[in-house]
């Protein structure tokens, strides 16, 4: 995307982290160009947080290397820390201090120049929508405000790279949307942002998406690239009951590449939809499952992800 020779904002090569016998991150390669918003998507325990923590210098990699903003994470961790903002998964501002006191603390820690500080603090407060509540103890704030304030603290020093670890988990949908608006405002200022989430719909807000499962990078690309090219077969939506029974039946149907539960219905990937889709209803009916006619749908990232993960599992069980 950038001219060759430009230093990527984040570069990881063979990044690996083991906790005892458990490999949390397994030879992960990652390259993020400057100014991109990259979604880091994967189920809980996939290794998203561990990767981000290694990139921030909070965890030592077991193997591999990484650089952030041009600084080597292992050799120059303090230089890395000067150039990043980090929001951990768990809320981690000081609840027994006020909004203003928290901002002042992080402003001091990041050595924000005093002449800039007043303006930046005002910006952070208005960004978080906390005007008039500057003297409220942070623990009294609701989730969305806390998250935006945490973001405000993390960007006080205008870091070129921002790591946000599940910033929207546990936050109500309206606040989540506002939060993504903020992320895009920052990206407009050429800030590189790696944001992890397990909400698949949020992936659509990103320039690029990195899918991670069991410590491995499964796929990376723009949301439309992933949607368009990654799915082998055609995706159909199938309303039926019971869902569990239907899954078992479909597992034995040769034309079904894959079937997964999505909410109250199934998503089924078929090799040749035109031919196979109509017969599904009767096959299911033979086994006592009531089904409506399958409907062709555009795959979402979640569909892609489910298939990639399933493929990974098959490969693992085969080898």
């Amino acid at each position: 995307m950038n001219a060759t020779g430009d230093i990527p904002a984040v570069l990881a090569e063979g990044l690996t982290k083991k906790f005892g016998n458990f490999t949390a991150v397994d030879h992960l390669d990652l390259r993020i160009e400057k100014g991109q918003v990259v979604g880091f998507i994967g189920p809980n325990g996939a290794g998203k947080s561990t990767t981000i923590r290694m990139l921030c210098g909070l965890l030592m990699p077991t193997a591999g290397r990484a650089s952030v903003a041009g600084f080597d994470v292992g050799r120059e961790p303090e230089a890395v820390r000067e150039h990043i903002g980090y929001m951990s998964q768990k809320f981690s501002l000081y609840g027994d201090m006020t909004v203003r006191e928290n901002l002042r603390f992080f402003g001091g820690i990041y050595r924000v120049r005093r002449e800039d500080f007043v303006e930046r603090m005002r910006f952070a407060i208005s960004m978080a929508g906390l005007e008039g509540r500057e003297n409220a103890l942070v623990r009294t704030l609701a989730g969305g405000w806390k998250q935006r304030l945490a973001l405000g603290c993390a960007i006080l020093h205008r870091p070129p790279v921002l790591f946000l670890d599940e910033p929207t988990s546990g936050v109500e949908p309206e606040a989540r949307r506002q939060f993504w608006d903020l992320i895009h405002e920052l990206a407009a200022d050429r800030v590189t942002i790696l944001v992890s989430t397990h909400y698949m719909d949020e992936a659509e807000y990103c320039n690029r998406v990195a899918l991670i499962d069991r410590g491995k990078l499964v796929a990376m690309g723009t949301p439309s690239e992933l949607r368009g090219h990654r799915l082998s077969g055609e995706l159909y939506e199938l309303r039926c009951a019971p869902l569990g029974g239907a899954l078992k039946v479909l597992a034995g149907v040769p034309s079904v590449i894959e079937a997964a539960i999505f909410g109250d219905r199934l998503h089924v990937v078929l090799t040749d939809g035109e031919r196979n889709a109509p017969e599904l209803v009767s096959i299911l009916g033979d086994h006592g499952v009531q089904a409506e006619a399958p409907r062709r749908i555009t795959p979402s990232l979640e569909d892609v992800f489910v298939q990639l993960v399933a493929r990974g599992t098959e490969q693992r069980t085969m080898t």
Partner: peptide
């Protein structure tokens, strides 16, 4: 309280 993770991500 979980504040340490934030603190050690700073250059202090």
């Amino acid at each position: 309280r979980g504040t340490m993770e934030q603190l050690i991500s700073t250059p202090i």
